[in-house]
Simulated assay, not measured.
Amino acid sequence: MAETSLEAATRSLGARIDPVFELFDYLKDVLFWVKDKKGIFRWVNTTLMLHIGRSSRDQIIGRTDFDLFEPYLANQYQMDDAQVLRGRPITSRVEMIVFHHTPRWIVTSKLPVRNASGRIVGTAGVATMAVQEGSKVWSESRLAPAMAFIKEHYHEPVSIGAMAQTCGFSLGSFHRQFRDTYLCTPHTYVRQLRVRMSCHGLVFSRRPIAAVAADCGFSDQSHFTKEFRRIMGETPRSYRRRHRH
């Protein structure tokens, strides 16, 4: 069983973890975590623990994203970590994640953890939940206007030019900013978002799969099934059967 104290986390990273981190246990809308260079969790707060359906830290510490999340999410988190380990922090990134098949908009920041000599030995991240459009934490993201646009129009044909215009960027600048922030193109992000938004309808409603697909912006069930399988690793029907209680 993995040791779950701050002292154990400090030893595993070779960097000092401040006891103030325990204060994150009292922030009910904030997720907090620390990982080493291999992507192994060394500390998480209670909110994160509960949101991924675990009852104690020792069910998370010592494990990686691939042990805890769907592969499509674990891959995204691994790419984020690789960027941060190269010394490129992620700050105030507005994004959508799925907890218990329900989409949630959050604002995420991730920083490198350094030891006493300044060498990067891991990553730390914080995500604010229950974020309202127009709030300070939302508006700190330069791409927040585009994300608000996507949030409202993801189920419709989405114009990348219109997204760029909401941020005041040229089309080329918008593409560069978006790829640097989300590690994919705007079109790819919208496709992934549509699939993630469909998860709630598949699990918590009895609507036909074709209707769920249409609600999320897919032109037909065949296209939806192809995209869903590519991102989630299984068909919508299989996902519904596996997760419906």
Rank of each mutant, 00 (worst) to 15 (best):
L27C: 06
R230D: 11
A8N: 02
P157H: 04
A148Y: 06
F99D: 06
P145Y: 00
K110D: 04
N45Y: 12
D81N: 14
A210V: 05
F66D: 11
G87S: 09
I52R: 06
L31T: 11
M197L: 14
T181C: 09
T166K: 13
Q78P: 00
I231V: 08
V203I: 04
L31S: 12
M163Y: 04
T102Q: 15
T46L: 11
R206I: 02
V137L: 06
R241F: 06
Y154F: 15
T91L: 14
F178Y: 09
G14E: 02
I61C: 08
V126L: 12
A130Y: 04
V94T: 13
A116P: 01
T128G: 08
S109V: 06
R88G: 00
G233P: 04
L183H: 11
H155V: 02
R16F: 13
T46S: 13
V126R: 00
L183A: 11
Y26T: 14
R176D: 12
A148P: 08
I160V: 15
V195E: 06
V203H: 07
S159A: 10
S12M: 07
M232A: 03
T188P: 01
H245L: 11
C167H: 03
I40Y: 00
D80T: 05
F41H: 07
K151I: 03
E156G: 00
T10Q: 02
A74W: 07
P19E: 11
R11F: 00
T185A: 11
N115H: 03
G53I: 06
F174N: 04
F149Q: 05
I90S: 01
A210H: 08
S205A: 01
Q76T: 11
P19W: 13
R54G: 10
R196C: 12
T91D: 10
H200Y: 15
I120Q: 07
M1L: 02
H101S: 13
S159G: 07
V158Y: 13
S139P: 09
S198W: 02
P236V: 05
S205H: 04
I160P: 11
Y77I: 09
L111S: 07
D215T: 04
A164D: 05
H200F: 13
A148G: 14
S198Q: 07
V158N: 10
S219E: 12
A162D: 12
T128A: 12
F32P: 07
L183C: 02
I52L: 15
D25Q: 08
S173H: 11
I231H: 04
Q59D: 13
G161N: 08
N75Y: 12
R54K: 15
F99Q: 10
A213Y: 01
W105H: 12
Q177A: 15
I97Q: 10
E133N: 07
Q221K: 03
D215I: 08
